[in-house]
Nucleic acid binder design. Structure first.
Lengths: 138, 138
DNA sequence: CTGCCACTTGAAGTCAGCTTTAGGTCAAGC
DNA sequence: GCTTGACCTAAAGCTGACTTCAAGTGGCAG
């Protein structure tokens, strides 16, 4: 028997409301109804995993829907490489921040403003060095 | 003469609407008015840099406002260390994603589903390995 | 056959961080 | 003195990814 929405929710760890939302967005499809109730093909689990993976990679649901658009998932290699580069920039930015935070957490200066390193970082922030590029998460 | 809002906007690269929003939130303060028009202390530039830095580090505006709450910026060392750890987790997660994307971008398999590495990553996604922890950006 | 309750729906609400809009004020230049 | 237009306000709107709500439906146990 094909799983119903609560079964999919339980097994995939995704709330039923989210599954309905994904269906409306065209990210997943139900195979039919049993009365009112949706029934899902077990393939939906793979779909959901792809969605979660895509999200983790920083793709929006709309972008993910595009990938699913043509039958079997078509994922453009250039698009993947571009997203990898986005991630790389984000990682570098976050790494710099993390190092700055670690320093500030251990800095012996009485106030952060008296620490030269902090002031240097602050100046970088003022000049926009840490502004996320478009396409970066957060 | 103290700068007015458009001067601050121009020099700090922050829209006037954002400055008003920050003022309402208590993140910055104007020193007075010239007619209706706000006047700002030049200190505001440092404030704005701190705000941008805090945002880049993943703090919410509310958290940043808390830090500003007691006269000179009080930034708790434990809080900084905790945020650094958050960032570290995020960085590791994103690095794994980036590597996965790079592989997929160059993978010779006709479909991603036929690549063992991709399938392995997909399984990890299904098991929630990439779900952002609470406190992580994006 | 009846009642329960898990499911259904569309619409509205949530969150953060802003931006936009509509209508108003007023310092400064002519 | 009059016009201009940059500034002001409160309130509403926006984005993305959902969640919540109120009201309805219907399969199945008893």
């Amino acid at each position: 028997m094909d799983p119903d929405i609560s079964e999919v929710a339980r097994r995939a760890g995704v709330p039923a409301s989210t599954l309905r939302y994904y269906e409306k967005k065209g990210l997943i499809a139900s195979t039919g109804r049993h009365g009112l109730r949706r029934q899902f093909d077990p393939d939906v689990y793979e779909r959901l995993a792809l969605i979660q993976l895509g999200q983790a990679a920083g793709f929006s649901l709309d972008e993910i829907a595009q990938m699913f658009a043509g039958g079997a998932p078509q994922i453009d290699h250039a698009q993947l490489a571009a997203k990898a580069d986005d991630l790389d920039r984000t990682i570098r930015r976050l790494s710099a921040m993390r190092d700055g935070l670690r320093h500030a957490a251990n800095c012996p200066a009485p106030s952060h403003m008296e620490c030269p390193k902090f002031r240097r970082i602050l100046k970088a922030a003022a000049s926009g060095a840490f502004r996320p590029r478009d396409g970066s998460p957060a």
